[in-house]
Structures are given as structure tokens and as C-alpha cells.
């Protein structure tokens, strides 16, 4: 991202919220935020803090209480709202993306059709484009909603928890897709999400809603290192700086592990999970031997060498 990044969306002293009994409930301090073109921003914060309200206000479907939102481009949204019409097919849903450009008779021209098919291809739903929405899995439905937003051909995409209720595989697929869209098509993307690990690994920038009604922004690594995440999420047992669940060693045995690559990482994981502490010159040594796709572990303890075919066997031997 160059410094001369163009601003796609900007808020000036924006106050969002809702009216209840003739009183304004403002959810955040006045916000002055900006989204740059080609940027993937993850918007994080605890449940009920007002992420959906802010997204709807940014999209212009809910009026702000004060201040203003400047959108330099058209905006497409993906929300958590339930939609009716289970007889609708994926293609029908994606066609909605063209509605702002269609007349009352919904006549599609070649360009509209092209954009619809491209959007379906982008989310890899070609094979089920004529399936009804009621027959889709949650992940496929979410992909179809994203395709609808893509068919709108808008430069700004605002997504409210697109990965909620999905399994890890689908979550990763969606985040990867969004990252790709930001990179390749220079779209500006704001995603409200709870997926801390995914956000840290994919976002260009994080918007973090804090308990004192502010939104802190920055690149993920800075926010991790300066402890902002810790104060917001008050993480219990998750060590953000290593990106892992923290384990307190509860066995006395110190071990050293020789090896590299994923084998080393997962061996370390297995040992730490089981309460062993890793140390560089411990007397108990585990060597990882990778020979023609086969992994073996050699344990040296009291000068006796034993070989194991799996980590489970190794752990069993270590315990005794």
C-alpha cells in the first residue's frame, strides 16, 4: 500500500446509534475514520458493541445521528439478515446485484449477464448456480451473498460477520477470497468479524472497538505488540504474541527437540500441550527423522535410544 492511497470512504465526527423513546443512544464517541482503496480492514469488538449499526450507517441504509459519511464510490453489503425466497436460485440471488442498474421489467443486457456469471465464478459456485438457496450449506449461502455483492460492481464492500456459523475451512476460504479481491480488484473491504486469528493473518488494518466507546485503528501486529488486543478481549489463556494457547508446564521433565519445519512445530505442540517444557540443552533429546515421507522420532533418555512411529507412542514412552 503506497502512502498516496486514495480514500474510498471517510467519516467525519460520525455518531451512530438508534432512537428509543425519543432519546438518542449513541454507540461510539464521534468517529473520524477512513478506508483506503484496496485495503482489507477487519472490524473487531465484542458482541453487541455496535458493529452492525456502524456498518449499516457506513453503507447508508441507516441514518447517522450526527456527523457524516463520505462515500467516494458505490457500496455493496453482506449482512446477517435472513432473506426470504427459498425457491430462489443462486443465480437469481446474484442477479439482485444488478438491480440498481435494471429497469422495472428487470431486463438484463450482456454486460449485466457477464457481471453475474463472473461473480458466480469468483466464489466458485458455477456448479450449483441453478440450485435453490434452501438446498445450500451455510458456507455456500454466504458465498452466494458475497457473489451478489460482487455483481453490484461496487468499489466498497462492507460485510457483517460473513464467517459466523461457518466451519474453519469455509472461514479461511472467505477471508482468502476477500483478501484476493482487495489485492486484485483494488476493492475496499471492511469485514466485521470475531475471527481473531484469521483477522491477524489477513487484514491490512484492524478497527478495534474498545469498551470506552472508541475505535482504535492500526495494523494487526502493532495492536498485538502494544497490548491493545489484550485490553479489549481480556484473553483468557490465549497468548496473542505467540498466537497460541498458553500452556503452563506441569511435568518436571525438560526436553530438547531437534528438527525443523512443520514436524518440529507439531512435535513442540504435542509436548507443550502435555505439560513438557522445551529447553535447548536438556538431557532428554527428541530427534525428528524424516526419511522418504515417513516421520520417525528418536528419543534419547539416559543414553538409551528408542524409535517411534507416532507422537502418541512417543508421549506414552515419555510418561513412563
Amino acid at each position: 500500500m503506497s502512502d498516496s492511497a486514495t480514500i474510498a470512504l471517510q467519516t467525519t465526527n460520525l455518531e451512530v446509534g438508534y432512537k428509543k423513546n425519543n432519546q438518542n443512544h449513541v454507540l461510539f464517541e464521534p468517529l473520524s475514520l477512513a478506508l483506503n482503496q484496496g485495503e482489507l480492514v477487519c472490524f473487531m469488538g465484542s458482541n453487541g458493541i455496535g458493529k452492525t449499526t456502524l456498518i449499516k450507517t457506513l453503507a447508508g441504509i441507516q441514518p447517522p445521528i450526527a456527523g457524516k459519511v463520505t462515500r467516494n464510490y458505490s457500496t455493496a453489503i453482506v449482512l446477517t439478515d435472513k432473506i426470504s425466497g427459498s425457491l430462489m436460485t443462486v443465480r437469481d440471488l446474484v442477479t439482485y446485484g444488478r438491480y440498481p442498474h435494471l429497469n422495472w421489467w428487470l431486463k438484463l443486457n450482456d454486460e449485466d449477464r457477464q457481471l453475474i456469471e463472473n461473480a458466480i465464478r469468483k466464489v466458485h459456485l458455477e456448479s450449483i448456480a441453478d440450485k435453490q438457496l434452501s438446498q445450500l450449506s451455510d458456507g455456500q449461502l454466504q458465498m452466494a451473498m458475497i457473489a451478489k455483492a460482487l455483481a453490484q460492481d461496487a468499489n466498497i464492500l462492507l460485510l457483517d460477520e460473513p464467517t459466523a456459523h461457518l466451519d474453519l475451512n469455509n472461514r479461511v476460504e472467505i477471508m482468502n477470497l476477500l483478501r484476493l479481491l482487495a489485492r486484485e480488484t483494488n476493492k475496499t473491504i471492511l469485514v466485521a468479524t470475531h475471527e481473531l486469528d484469521l483477522a491477524l493473518q489477513t487484514a491490512d488494518k484492524i478497527w478495534l472497538a474498545t469498551q470506552d466507546k472508541k475505535i482504535v485503528t492500526g495494523i494487526p501486529e502493532d495492536l498485538v505488540l502494544d497490548g491493545t488486543f489484550d485490553t479489549v478481549f481480556q484473553l483468557k489463556g490465549f497468548d496473542l504474541k505467540t498466537g497460541k494457547i498458553s500452556h503452563a508446564p506441569y511435568r518436571k521433565t525438560l526436553v530438547q527437540v531437534e528438527g525443523s519445519g512443520p514436524e518440529y512445530l507439531w512435535t513442540k505442540n504435542a509436548l507443550e500441550r502435555n505439560g513438557y517444557e522445551l529447553e535447548a540443552d536438556a538431557p532428554t533429546i527428541i530427534r525428528i527423522l524424516t526419511l522418504s515421507d515417513k516421520i520417525n522420532w528418536e528419543l534419547t533418555h539416559n543414553n538409551i535410544n528408542t524409535k517411534f512411529n507416532s507422537l502418541a507412542e512417543l508421549l506414552r514412552a515419555l510418561r513412563n
Binding site: 441504509i61 453489503i77 439482485y96
Partner: peptide
């Protein structure tokens, strides 16, 4: 018949419909 587009839009709910200029 003049409402065909809007009727389709209603199926997506108010927020989506507004975003689609309905």
C-alpha cells in the same frame, strides 16, 4: 406489475433492498 422489481427486493429484507436502491 410496475412493482415487480420492488417485490423481489422485499424478499431480501429492508436493508438489502435499500442498498439496491429500492
Amino acid at each position: 406489475i410496475s412493482l415487480i422489481k420492488s417485490l423481489n427486493g422485499i424478499l431480501l429484507g429492508e436493508s438489502y433492498a435499500l442498498n439496491l436502491a429500492i
